[in-house]
Amino acid sequence: MLNIKPSRILLYGLLIIFVIASLLPLWTCIVTALKSSQEVILTTPITPPIDPTMEKIIESINLLKKPLMNSLILVFSGVMVSAFFGSFIGYIFSKHRFPGSIYMFILIVLCLYIPPQVQLIPMVRTMSNLGLFGNLGALVLLYMLFGIPMCAFIFKTFYDDEIPDSYINAAKVDGAGIWTTYRRVVLPLSILPFVVAALLQVVVIWNDFIWGLVLTSGKANLPITVAMANLKGSFVAEWNLQMAGALWVSMPTLIIFIFLGKYIIRGYSGL
């Protein structure tokens, strides 16, 4: 006889409801992407396709090829640059404090909490003045800079907790300057925070929509999220095409969360 407590049954029942609720969008996305345009109109979004077709999935990737490349460029440049600067800044604020350094660090972290909406207009103006407005370059620069506070925070927390001051002091006494100590002692011990920071930045940059929408123009410069939104068509909503695009867009972050989610959680919980 199986003996299960009623409270357990209730708990699992609730969990199943939550799981269904959270997987519903993904389900809709997949089934719609596999439907032909006629079927989309005739069936509800959650019914499985009667006659599955890969047509729209292939069509969407053809349309998204260029934006996909753009987003990859953004992710790589953004991640590399902000992780590197974040690491060095985190190192300075953790191991080479100076009077007032804690206030400076708080200012840097506060940057994380400025909503993008208030920065839109100043940023558009700055980018125009730099002659980058409308180009992919504007986004490249933006993500490099915007990633630094988060990375600096991740690295400083890691260095505070995981790298003893005595490592730095020993290097100092042995004749190593700030940079040599960073390169020879701190950097090789930073693999974990680099993974965490990189994953977080990949997800942030990949999913970002608003900056791509505002700062770039012309088909050739769009990041993938914006290009995907444009798939919906001008006169008739082509839901299947758009859902197919959404599948492509969400794939990388989904994979990251499923396989490397624990690193991202460490990032948010201060390693």
Partner: peptide, 9 residues
């Protein structure tokens, strides 16, 4: 600076 003091610790 410590780098120039020639002590070992």
């Amino acid at each position: 600076i410590p780098q120039k003091r020639g002590v070992a610790m």
